[in-house]
Design a protein around this nucleic acid. Structure first.
Lengths: 110, 110
DNA sequence: TTGGAATTTTCCTGTAAAGGAAATTTCTAT
DNA sequence: ATAGAAATTTCCTTTACAGGAAAATTCCAA
């Protein structure tokens, strides 16, 4: 997984943007800015970051830019996140090893 | 989903740390620093961020701090990411609406 | 071709955060 | 009690980036 994808999503306004697009489908920049009470320049910059990260796609129709979520990028992110769920046993499997080592060293004086 | 979780993972070194813990199980701070060629203070700070975000758990054994991945937080992240996969149709479902609207307005002159 | 709407770019400023280095704390063993 | 390992804290510097404001594009309609 690349850091750009994660950091794009880590910014609160951008998180709101992708959630909005997820919920209502596709929107123009102006609609996004209005619904989230953001200014246009900031919205434009945020959308640029999101599209650079491949998280949204743009469709240019005349003056307008229509944005929507790009599922494939979320699918890739999902694979990465899931790799942590399928990981080996839970914590402390290493704690045993440490405790064994301590015992081996011999620690009679308590 | 909270921004802290995402921004914790967005930093390259921290991403390496959680991947390391995912792959080998649990490690002490010193082991993490050594395996990733990081300095101890930086490693300590990064692990603090990760544990504040609930992505790793710490187990204090004497001098040592043993870290391991906290699956539940990744599970929660996974639920959020998946909500984008289950979202409505793909892009451009809104484009249709726009085109219809344009038609309604009547645009004979081409 | 002039006007206006939609979007982007530029420039500036403030702030959050990461890395380096040194000092400090915490715990163990002798 | 002291030395030494493991980890943390502090302070400093630098950099990345988000927001504000104004100017500049881009495109369509009359």
């Amino acid at each position: 997984m690349n850091a750009a994808t994660l950091s794009a999503l880590a910014e609160p306004n951008r998180m709101n943007i992708v959630e909005l697009l997820r919920d209502v489908g596709a929107l123009t920049l102006g609609e996004i800015a209005e619904r989230l009470s953001l200014r246009l320049p900031q919205s434009s910059k945020h959308l640029r970051v999101l599209s650079d990260a491949g998280l949204v796609v743009v469709d240019a129709v005349a003056n307008r830019r229509i944005f929507s979520v790009q599922k494939e990028q979320f699918a890739e992110l999902d694979r990465w996140v899931q790799s942590f769920l399928n990981a080996k046993e839970e914590q402390f499997d290493r704690l045993d090893a440490l405790l064994c080592k301590v015992q081996e060293q011999g620690n009679e004086p308590m």
